[in-house]
């Protein structure tokens, strides 16, 4: 699905990623954990194509394409989805209009006909149930006046609507109460299939009680320094990140 090899990246001259390597196959859920400033959100931004970052070395192959050569929207058309840590408000643009535009742009890029209004509305009804999103929110402006939990649920709703190959969830659990967390996780689990994959970026272990990862990676100082299964997350929860830092320095 995606293969990241020896990725180095700078922002404003400062090196954030220092040789990150990661392979994700279809059907897998990978969790990326790490202390603040490790480069977790940078990774998400670079995969989605934010322009502020300078890639100095390395390569990323996504669905057979050279990801770093593609524009942000081309990556989206190929099936890459980023659930934002801070979803953006777009006043005056309804969620449904936004999503319909997004779906049709993707369809257009693939040479497909636009979605019919009927099919689209049926999809909205079906998918909004997955994240228990009030159908009223679907007709409101994108994220405007949404609570923190609603915004995150809306991200998962959009993910459900766009049906991506690879979903990158950037600290989707931050600022969520336990109920919202459960709903979000349920959404992600429902959408999981043998054909798609997700990278779950998180600071805390608690999200992983609900979204069970196949692999847990620890990102520290721009590199993946440790990989394990879900038990690694529990260990991190218990011991914190310091031992990883020390271990890395020793190594």
């Amino acid at each position: 699905m995606i293969e990241i090899k020896n990725l180095h990246a700078n922002i404003e001259g400062k090196e954030i990623l220092k040789g990150l390597t990661l392979t994700v196959n279809a059907g897998e859920v990978h969790a990326i954990m790490g202390p603040n400033g490790a480069g977790k959100s940078t990774l998400a931004s670079i995969l989605a194509g934010r322009e502020e970052y300078e890639i100095t070395k390395g390569e990323v192959t996504f669905e057979g394409a050279d990801l770093l050569e593609l524009s942000t929207e081309e990556r989206a058309h190929l099936g890459l989805f980023l659930a934002f840590q801070y979803p953006v408000e777009i006043p005056g643009v309804s969620n449904v209009n936004f999503l319909r535009t997004a779906i049709n742009e993707t369809r257009d890029a693939k040479g497909e006909d636009p979605i019919s209004a009927k099919e689209f509305m049926a999809m909205v009804r079906e998918k909004s149930k997955i994240v228990e999103l009030d159908s009223k929110l679907a007709s409101r402006s994108v994220n405007e006046g949404f609570s923190g939990g609603e915004k995150k649920r809306n991200e998962i709703f959009q993910m459900a609507m766009l049906n991506p190959k690879l979903a990158v969830l950037d600290e989707t659990d931050s600022g969520l109460d336990i109920d919202a967390l459960r709903i979000v996780a349920k959404g992600v689990n429902t959408l999981k299939s043998a054909d798609n994959a997700s990278i779950v970026i998180t600071h805390y272990q608690r999200l992983l009680d609900y979204i069970v990862p196949d692999f847990v990676h620890v990102l520290h100082d721009g590199k993946i320094v440790k990989t394990g299964n879900k038990d690694l997350a529990l260990e991190l929860e218990e011991k914190g990140y310091d031992w990883i830092k020390e271990e890395t320095q020793v190594g």
Binding site: T72, E73, A76, V88, I90, V93, F98, L99, A102
Partner: peptide
Amino acid sequence: FYCKQRGISEEKAISLIVNGY
């Protein structure tokens, strides 16, 4: 960026945002 990440081109994103505004 949010619009583009969802597959919407820049031109269309501008028109969407401006019309919303």
